[in-house]
Design a protein around this nucleic acid. Structure first.
Lengths: 145, 145
DNA sequence: ATAAAGGTTATAGCGACTATAAGGTCAAGC
DNA sequence: GCTTGACCTTATAGTCGCTATAACCTTTAT
């Protein structure tokens, strides 16, 4: 079996080549996101550089915060070489909006936590202003968490 | 059954009083985070203002991003009226670190997505720089996502 | 008396993995 | 040839913080 004869990877090799765990690769396979090119006679998955590139695309998109569903769409779009890339750009914009919303939420959290931390004067729980503050009501839901 | 005679709540009433869903309250009960004060003869949970305040504490802490495990610890600490509040302060600091790490990660994401978006020139997928960029390797893992 | 609105439990699903178990395959050293 | 260990296979369950569903029981209002 010429597995080593360049450009062929078993899961483990593909894992090393891309910095992804083998279990994750199998998981993507199960989801239909990254089917293996073929199998050896004994049933081992076999990948080529095509799948390696597809996997890198997936991982890079994940690192940008896209969901696997988003990525599925992005991969479909990427395959339609002739159509407009407006749809791709739109998905990037959507993701940017989500990230910015999340950023604003987290900044608000940071501020609140700073205030909380500031009001601790090293005393005893019974007089702890942090515990006191945590017991207050109000606080509207963040738009995402 | 004097459920209405002030300061007694069924799940639904407690839910309304705190802006929490009844299912979530039962979930907290199951986890032992928020046991009901008692039950009616027919088995309905009964809560008092003590549990209402405990629930508000939980919800406020959740809004600040603490995990339920963290909150369990915070609640335990809050009950030890006589001990130092250093441990409480430490947990707030920890959370602050987590939030700031997350913030930096998200800011990096925002920048990357902006670059991606900028490089789209409205052409066709085959020449799309976004797709091209997504296919690149590199990109170190964020410290949290 | 009945129907709607509440309550109860147990169980499964979400997303993106991760962990475990129980087994089959392959290359290397003896 | 035989064993060891590293690799592969599958199926199943666990993570977190809920949310949804089903099947049933109780209280409240008309």
């Amino acid at each position: 079996m010429n597995i080593n004869r360049q450009k062929h990877f078993t899961v483990g090799r593909l894992a090393k080549a891309t910095g992804t765990k083998a279990v994750t690769i199998r998981y993507y396979d199960r989801l239909g996101l990254l089917p293996s090119a073929g199998r050896t006679e004994s049933g081992y998955r076999l990948y080529t550089t095509t799948e390696r590139d597809r996997l890198l695309f997936i991982r890079r998109s994940r690192a940008l915060g896209f969901s696997l569903d988003d990525i599925r769409e992005l991969l479909d779009l990427a395959d339609q070489k002739a159509s407009s890339c407006a749809a791709v750009d739109a998905k990037v914009e959507e993701q940017l909006v989500r990230v910015r919303t999340r950023l604003r939420d987290l900044q608000a959290l940071e501020t609140e936590l700073e205030h909380l931390s500031d009001c601790c004067e090293g005393g005893v729980i019974d007089e702890c202003r942090i515990i006191e503050s945590l017991s207050l009501r109000e606080s509207s839901e963040p738009s995402s968490l």
